[in-house]
């Protein structure tokens, strides 16, 4: 009997990019790895230390595909990766897992992306998807906020985002900062500032859960339907394949049934604190 489901493949870190304080993007090269769709995640294994679930923030196809994983040093495994893993080092990798953003189902729609902090990571492949298939989607709006300017991810790409045709790209930070000329306040405030055609818009949201709830409720108020608002949720994900039971949210296994859910599907659960 094959017991390979939980076995990692050997990945090689080919590049490490400093994104923000305690946040780095690890480019991991691996052979014969299925192509992840936007919003899916991989499980990275640091030998002897443990695994951590990280969304794929970019994918470059090839004989050896390269996937980017943006990691914040916050727990025991991510701290280890941050401190010890550099270009040339190995990381175990398995995946891709979970249900990603249903971007293909919404061709022809206006696309609205709302990201908060490190929550931009799983949204990044969506931006690429819209940008590369520009004629397949309507108006593109990206709203991205972080605590401080320095906490923003993928700063080296922000100009490119702004050059996407027929788009609105707005950034926000939580508190005033001398270097900042953009909006100060919550990223969800920006929802009030953009033009939306609710009947023809699909929204993809990722950030802290409170922010996602506020964003979703605002979008509903602006006339979007709850089944056109998608969130990428975080829970304690361990196995990634729905067998360890850690990530349950109501009857969902976030790793297997998610991490991306329509707001309609999870709204009743998210409304109850600690469910």
């Amino acid at each position: 009997m094959a017991l390979g489901r939980l076995l990692p493949k050997v990945g090689r870190v080919v590049k490490v990019v400093d994104e923000a304080p305690l946040v780095r993007t690890y480019h991991v090269e691996v052979e014969e790895f299925p192509e992840p769709s936007p919003g899916q995640f991989n499980v990275l294994y640091a030998k002897g230390m443990g695994e951590v679930v990280i969304s794929v923030s970019n994918y470059v196809a090839g004989g050896k595909s390269v996937m980017e994983h943006t990691v914040r040093a916050i727990g025991s495994v991510t701290n280890y990766i941050y401190a010890k893993i550099g270009a040339g080092d190995q990381l175990g990798i398995r995946g891709p897992y979970g249900k990603g953003w249903p971007i293909r189902e919404f061709e022809g729609y206006d696309v609205l992306i709302v990201g908060g902090g490190i929550g931009l990571a799983p949204l990044r492949p969506l931006i690429k998807c819209v940008s590369e298939g520009r004629d397949r989607y309507g108006r593109f709006t990206l709203l991205y906020g972080a605590r401080r300017p320095v906490d923003m991810l993928y700063k080296y790409e922000h100009e490119e985002y702004g050059r996407i045709p027929d788009s609105t790209v707005l950034f926000s930070i939580d508190a005033p900062h001398p270097s900042w000329r953009g909006y100060v306040g919550f990223v969800t405030d920006l929802i009030d500032k953009v033009k939306l055609e609710p009947a023809n818009t699909v929204a993809f949201v990722c950030g802290p859960e409170v922010m996602m709830k506020v964003a979703s409720d605002k979008l509903l108020k602006r006339g979007l339907k709850a089944d056109r608002v998608f969130l990428s949720l975080e829970r304690r994900c361990r196995c990634g394949v729905g067998i360890c039971g850690s990530c349950q949210l109501g009857h969902y296994f976030v790793c297997k049934d998610g991490p991306v859910f329509s707001y309609q599907d999870v709204k009743p659960y998210l409304a109850v604190r600690g469910l």
Binding site: G48, S76, A83, K84
Partner: peptide
Amino acid sequence: VKLVLGGTETP
């Protein structure tokens, strides 16, 4: 052992 290896225990 984990500290020697540069990591730590996951509590």
